[in-house]
Design a binder for these strands. Structure first.
Length: 261
DNA sequence: ATGGTCGACTCTCGA
């Protein structure tokens, strides 16, 4: 029985993460790897590195900030960048989608928002609303569709450490969480929670928090969501903490999902 | 547990 492994990983600079990526891609044998915060323009994106490991790769980035990519050892078809909705900014370095083995893969790096009174937070809320419209325009609820990425939202109290202290945080504010649930309500299942309902499961540990990983002070803000037809084929979904114990880790770690083919 | 680090690129910003 064939399986397909799809992962999301905020690498915090793809070029500085090449040693971690090499080790992780070879040990995980991931089939579809969605990256965020590649932090490089396309001219200096290390496409040859992925190709040398037998992966195709599509990407769109900018200098120092943002940037998304999809790598796969299967053909990558029908690639789109940004919202294509005529609204500025088009967010081409935060949103990339493609079709791989008949699965529609949407990879997003959603704005963090800075603070709830900052204009970037309004952009973040607008980003989620535009995601809902993108799904309406391009997909049907019956499609095999997977939406992954760093979404900069921790959906519930068990997705953060000390939720009471985070009520006004841009990744945990009520308005944002309600909106996220609304967009998910288009037809998505949280694949991670389907398989791991318990607390203490995080994908991001702040570099600034001393021994955050050891003390498990983190956030679950990297998500794997799928439509029910694809979601019913999921076998497992988990956070792989290994890359956080390696040299030069990202502040995020891969979230991995496995589906029956 | 966003004072306390890391990455890219300047000498500061974003997360």
């Amino acid at each position: 029985m064939g399986e397909i492994k799809i992962a999301t990983f905020n690498v915090n600079s793809v070029r500085s993460r090449i040693p971690v990526l090499e080790k992780w891609i070879q040990s995980s044998r991931v089939n579809v790897l969605c990256l965020q915060e590649t932090k490089t323009v396309d001219e200096t994106f290390p496409a040859g590195f992925f190709e040398s490991l037998g992966y195709n790769v599509v990407y769109r980035g900018e200098k120092a900030y943002n940037g998304v990519a999809i790598a796969s050892n299967y053909p990558i078809e029908d690639v789109h960048f940004g919202f294509e909705d005529g609204e500025e900014p088009l967010a081409e370095t935060r949103l990339i989608r493609a079709t791989i083995k008949g699965i529609n893969v949407v990879n997003t790096y959603i704005p963090q928002g800075k603070s709830i009174d900052h204009e970037d937070y309004q952009y973040k809320l607008r980003f989620f609303k535009r995601m809902g419209m993108l799904f309406d325009r391009n997909f049907r609820k019956e499609d095999h569709l997977i939406w992954v990425g760093d979404m900069n939202v921790a959906p519930t109290d068990i997705d953060v450490t000390s939720p009471e202290r985070k009520r006004d945080h841009v990744c945990f504010h009520k308005d944002l969480k309600v909106l996220f649930e609304e967009v998910k309500g288009w037809g998505f299942i949280d694949i991670f929670r389907k398989h791991r309902p318990g607390e203490g499961e995080f994908s991001f540990w702040d570099y600034r928090v001393k021994n955050a990983l050891e003390r498990n002070i983190g956030w679950r803000i990297d998500h794997i969501l799928a439509t029910s037809s694809l979601g019913s084929l999921s076998i497992d979904c988990y956070v792989d903490r290994d890359p956080r114990s390696w040299e030069k880790p990202s502040d995020h770690t891969p979230v991995v999902s496995i589906f029956k083919e």
